[in-house]
């Protein structure tokens, strides 16, 4: 019941410029097993750039991201050969895009989309793949009868659930999410958030969640990091940062939210 002090991912002094624009300036952070960290801030503050640098999709100009599952941060994202990085991305890590169409194969049935990672890992039994697909459809609360339908026939909320199923089927220990709820209608956001919260808690994975929505951060994240102009200006337990913000910019951000 005690917290283990060994992080599973550490970023040190990540710096990245796009021409004259400094997108990341000496950003450092740690992720611990099973925790949900929300990265919040306004548009253009560098949230998604940071997420992609941590994930290994963007190479920083300076700094490094180290990771490891068993308390040893023995591997470096930036130094990983492409094949190993791809393997990591398709098994032990997952990435949930804001737009599910960026992740789903629209010409392949829902079931096929869900089990792709299993086939990449070597599963060669069709019956097993079907079973797993049905299991995960139920888990993300999609009618199993839709297993052979194309994703294009699904609503936005269902596509996002499909993306979650497709990603979580390999039981990643670390999930990267880029604004997973902002493309959804308000009417389905709540249900999706609840599903996400339950899955994250049940699967015991760590999540790095980029969101501009402080309410989403409050409901999902244990910790938040506030970004402004490529820097993390404040971090802490989510309710601490949102209810007792210390930095002037965080105070502005929190006070700018319209009450629902």
């Amino acid at each position: 019941m005690n917290y283990s002090p060994a992080p599973i991912l550490i970023a040190r002094d990540l710096t990245l410029s796009f021409g004259a624009l400094c997108a990341l300036e000496s950003v450092s952070l740690e992720i611990h097993p099973g925790e949900v960290l929300a990265i919040v801030g306004e548009s253009g503050s560098g949230k998604t750039t940071l997420l992609n640098a941590l994930y290994g999709a963007l190479a920083p100009d300076a700094g490094e991201v180290r990771f490891g599952e068993n308390g040893e941060l023995d591997r470096c994202v930036q130094a990983l050969p492409r094949q190993q990085l791809r393997h990591l991305h398709r098994s032990a890590w997952g990435y949930v895009h804001q737009n599910p169409r960026d992740a789903l194969r629209m010409e392949i049935t829902a079931g096929g989309n869900i089990v792709e990672r299993l086939m990449a890992a070597g599963e060669r039994h069709y019956g097993t793949l079907r079973e797993k697909a049905l299991f995960w459809l139920q888990k993300v609360e999609i009618d199993p009868k839709r297993i052979d339908d194309l994703p294009g026939t699904f609503s936005g909320g269902m596509q996002q659930r499909l993306q979650i199923a497709r990603t979580l089927i390999s039981h990643p220990y670390l999930l990267f999410m880029d604004e997973p709820t902002s493309g959804l209608d308000v009417s389905v956001q709540a249900g999706f958030l609840d599903l996400l919260r339950n899955l994250v808690s049940e699967q015991r994975m760590a999540v790095i969640l980029v969101t501009h929505d402080l309410a989403v951060a409050r409901l999902l994240a244990g910790r938040v990091a506030v970004m402004q102009r490529g820097r993390i200006i404040e971090t802490g337990v989510t309710d601490q940062v949102l209810d007792d913000p210390q930095h002037p910019y965080t105070q502005l951000l929190v006070s700018s939210v319209l009450p629902a």
């Binding site: 492409r82 094949q83 791809r86 194969r105 392949i108 049935t109 079931g111 096929g112 089990v115 792709e116 990672r117 086939m119 990449a120 060669r124 069709y126 793949l129 052979d148």
Partner: peptide, 19 residues
């Protein structure tokens, strides 16, 4: 090919059996 990652082709076979 370099990574011998042929899950895409298995995906095609999966969908063939399904359809």
């Amino acid at each position: 090919h370099a990574m011998a990652d042929y899950s895409l082709m298995y995906l095609k076979l999966y969908d063939q059996i399904t359809r």
